[in-house]
Simulated assay, not measured.
Amino acid sequence: EDLHAHPGVAAAGYSLFALAMAVGRLSGTALLERLGQTRTLVTGGALAAAGMLLGALAPAPWMALLGFAVTGLGLANIFPVAVARAGAIAGPSGVAAASTLGYGGMLVGPPVIGFLADWYSLPVALTTVAALAGAAALLGYSARGASPARRT
């Protein structure tokens, strides 16, 4: 509605996001081998933040669609790498905490975005997603020197 686009464009936006995320996940192992965990987290978070900002603030529907695709590429490997990193740093309790936060975010996130869009606007709601993706990039960078958990 904000961009005066046909309702099918909204479906295309989610489809492009999901397709880009699938492509990103399928190429994730090669990406991790090439960049390593820290760079994958930081690059993914920054790419997702930039993509969501583009999707949220785009003046044209095609730019919003591009933003959603870029967001999918950026987010594709953040969750698996974050869970692996949490396991390496804190062991099983780290995996449990990262999984709980990740899956909790997937359950709580959409309604929160909907409420924010209703209370303020859709661009404001989607900008919060960009801010959270940027925070994920910063967290990934800040945990780069953390030592793995000792196994007993």
Rank of each mutant, 00 (worst) to 15 (best):
101 L>C: 14
36 G>T: 13
37 Q>A: 15
83 V>T: 14
22 A>D: 04
43 T>R: 09
43 T>Y: 13
96 A>R: 14
49 A>Q: 02
55 G>C: 09
34 R>D: 07
53 L>T: 11
95 V>Q: 13
43 T>F: 15
38 T>Q: 11
101 L>E: 05
52 M>K: 02
67 G>T: 12
81 V>Y: 01
91 G>R: 08
79 F>R: 00
80 P>Q: 08
75 L>R: 00
31 L>Y: 01
37 Q>F: 01
33 E>Q: 14
102 G>S: 13
55 G>R: 02
79 F>Y: 10
80 P>K: 02
49 A>F: 04
73 L>T: 07
54 L>P: 00
96 A>F: 10
48 A>G: 08
24 G>C: 12
54 L>R: 02
55 G>D: 05
99 S>F: 09
59 P>V: 09
43 T>E: 01
71 T>W: 06
58 A>R: 05
94 G>S: 07
50 A>C: 12
75 L>N: 04
103 Y>H: 11
42 V>G: 04
69 A>K: 06
48 A>L: 02
95 V>N: 01
70 V>Y: 01
31 L>T: 15
91 G>P: 08
59 P>E: 08
90 A>P: 00
89 I>T: 12
80 P>R: 05
95 V>S: 05
55 G>I: 06
33 E>I: 03
57 L>R: 04
64 A>Y: 01
33 E>M: 10
85 R>H: 15
74 G>V: 07
43 T>H: 09
73 L>I: 12
27 S>K: 12
69 A>P: 14
74 G>D: 10
87 G>F: 06
62 W>Q: 11
97 A>P: 00
91 G>Y: 07
26 L>T: 11
63 M>C: 04
66 L>S: 07
63 M>A: 15
85 R>S: 14
89 I>D: 00
40 T>P: 01
